[in-house]
Design a protein around this nucleic acid. Structure first.
Length: 589
RNA sequence: CGGGGAGUGGCUCAGCCUGGUAGAGCACCUGGUUCGGGACCAGGGGGUCGGAGGUUCAAAUCCUCUCUCCCCGACCA
């Protein structure tokens, strides 16, 4: 029997001054966690119990599709050099040296270790498919840990990796995970969304994220108010409302107009009496490339054209450039390329690469929203001048058209046309088809049916354990604390005798708690010699879903059952209490 | 890394401007009265004022350096 009086549950009346988001404040106040350093937390009794319940659910569902491993947290440098990520990851990786001076790192993730095992051990297609998972600590030296457990430097992650002989196999492994994840998050009692995700510049064909809406989140997600369309900002698209082109002026060819001092889209549009969507926005970036052989760094201009009222999404730009990093162009570089100061830039008068692979010439990427438009206004590459009658494809040739635009709230859903909404959310899980990235670079090979050597195809799938608890708290808090879903709460029921010095009350509570315990419920008996108000406040704070108040009504053989989530109070006779929970609690577990 | 804020008892904070050797509330310990939504009375314990250096007869307070934490931004396989 867990007796509150003997336990360490350090609840606080006030939140620590440095806590900002609800889950951080309440998890500290409720005695679940304590901070040790920036982004590093100790999990105390209640927190640990909750995490154990979450991990038990994850294990049960993962065991249906895969096998659990336990892997090292310390990795040798060589392992990470094999995949190329020792230098790629940079400062986000915790690195250390052993006594001999050899370089090690703390496990940032486990693709490398898993692939190393696969490389050494997998020989034949007959051994495939494999799904291996682990629930372990990851270390990331985040530049800015924040929001309590939401962004930390040490955290528990369930990650799994699938190895298949071909793409069809990967599809199957991916779908197995998708289903397992739904089972897990459903059982954890979370309201979540599955959204299309940007799969990263490093290959990967399909990717979805499991997101929980909360203002505490760091990600922006786009979803449809009517249908099931949902995607993250880097991936989201929308239908465009039709816009009207301007009529051609003069002979219809690009026409120079004087626009003194008009630099912004708004200024020019207003000055010329046109809508911003008739304007071309010209954004200048620089792509920095390294020659693979010589190692020499070189730069190459990348110009992105957007509709005047649209925003460029830099991740989409990155995708359009096959993962090559860009930075904004400096003023001197702009003048060098365009012979004009910023504010009057446009696509005419510069010789562009005919496609994105053609070297040496600047790349001109044009957002798809400009495709088919005519008689637009662009900068003239001449101070204080713009051009009218600019028509893409006629007056200039893009290197490529691409989707570069960030979706805005209210735009029509690409599937059904209903308005899209944008919310902040927390990512609790991510599944994606990795492809051959690690198996190829690290040299994993198996023989297929024909005795031919093939590279196994991989998938990678993660769940943030702490984020499940955090998201649950974010979803269910009120002014008194939070209310955890039954499945992940540290206890099912707290039994609260209102006065332990009243022998009748004390023994009735004791008795009742024992009976519930025997039935297999997780029961916490609040046997502290405290006033009722203190106990009620604490019980509300720590989020246990059910509370049984044992008070004066014991003389009538009656107790009260209080549901934390709804505040609903019900009198139940002591004789019927087991029956009550068998009906109201058991089915939810 | 850029910008902003904060380090004073376990927690929340006052004191700092204008130097004189540390306070409040909560928490904790003892005794008593209480006992259905964070009780009351009496007594008590606990702080090298983040650290180092400097100025001064004297530094929580002024100056310099440094460490840590939080927030915004950048970043985020």
């Amino acid at each position: 029997m867990h007796r509150w009086s003997q336990l360490f549950i350090p609840t606080l009346r006030e939140a620590p001054a440095d806590a900002e988001v609800a889950s951080h404040k309440f998890l500290v106040r409720a005695g679940y966690i304590r901070q040790l350093a920036a982004g590093i937390y100790s999990y105390l009794f209640l927190g640990n119990r909750s995490f154990n319940k979450i991990m038990a659910i994850v294990r049960e569902e993962m065991d249906k599709i895969g096998q659990e491993f336990y892997l090292p947290a310390l990795h040798p440098r060589e392992l990470w050099e094999a995949s190329g990520r020792w230098s790629l990851i940079g400062e986000n990786m915790f690195r250390l040296k052993d006594r001999k001076g050899a370089d090690l790192c703390l496990g940032f993730t486990h693709e490398e270790v898993m692939t190393e095992i696969a490389r050494k051990e997998l020989r034949s297609y007959k051994q495939l498919p494999q799904i291996w998972y682990q629930i372990q600590t990851k270390f990331r030296d985040e530049p800015r840990p924040k929001s309590g457990l939401l962004r930390v430097r040490q955290f528990i992650m369930k990650d799994s990796y699938s190895f298949d002989i071909d793409a069809a196999g990967l599809d199957a492994s991916y779908l197995k995970h998708r289903q397992a994840y739904k089972n897990i998050f459903d059982r954890c009692g979370l309201k979540y969304m599955v959204i299309e995700a940007h799969s990263g510049a490093m290959g990967g064909s399909q990717s979805e994220e499991f997101m929980v809406r909360t203002p505490a989140g760091e990600d922006q997600i786009v979803s449809c108010e009517k249908c099931d369309y949902a995607a993250n900002m880097e991936k989201a698209i929308s239908r465009l409302e039709p816009v009207s082109d301007l009529a051609a002026e003069g002979d219809g060819k690009p026409l120079l107009v004087h626009t003194p001092g008009m630099k912004t889209i708004e200024e020019v549009a207003k000055f010329l009496g046109v809508a911003p969507n008739n304007k071309i926005k010209t954004l200048a970036y620089v792509m920095e490339e390294k020659d693979k052989k010589s190692g020499k760094a070189s730069t190459r201009p990348v110009i992105a054209l957007m509709r005047g009222d649209h925003q460029l999404n830099e991740t989409k730009l990155l995708t359009a450039l096959a993962g090559k990093q860009t930075r904004l162009m400096q003023e001197e570089e702009i003048v060098q390329l365009f012979k004009s100061p910023a504010g009057f830039l446009g696509p005419l008068g510069v010789e562009w690469a005919s496609n994105t692979n053609e070297a040496d010439k600047p790349i001109l990427l044009v957002d798809s929203a400009l495709k088919g438009r005519t008689n637009l206004i662009s900068g003239a590459n001449k101070e204080d001048y713009h051009l009218k009658n600019v028509t893409p494809g006629r007056d200039f040739q893009p290197s490529a058209y691409a989707d570069l635009r960030s979706v805005s709230a209210g735009e029509p859903c690409p599937k059904c046309g209903a308005p899209l909404r944008i919310d902040t959310a927390v990512e609790i899980g991510h599944i994606f088809k990795l492809g051959y990235k690690y198996s190829e670079s690290m040299g994993a090979r198996v023989l297929d049916k024909n005795g031919k050597e093939v590279i196994p195809i991989m998938g990678s799938y993660g769940i943030g354990i702490e984020r499940i608890l955090t998201a649950a708290v974010e979803q269910s808090n009120d002014e008194n604390g939070f209310s955890l879903p039954l499945q992940i709460a540290p206890f099912d029921i707290v039994v609260t005798p209102t006065n332990v010095s009243d022998e009748k009350i004390r023994s009735a509570a004791e008795n009742l708690a024992c009976r519930l315990l025997e039935k297999g419920y997780d029961v916490l008996l609040d046997d502290r010699d405290e006033r009722p108000g203190v106990k009620f406040k604490d019980a509300d704070l720590v989020g246990i879903p059910f509370r049984v108040n044992v008070g004066k009504k014991v003389t009538d053989d009656t107790v009260e059952v209080v549901r934390r989530s709804t505040r609903e109070i019900q009198d139940v006779s002591i004789a019927a209490i087991i029956e009550y929970f068998e009906q109201n609690l058991r089915p939810a577990r």
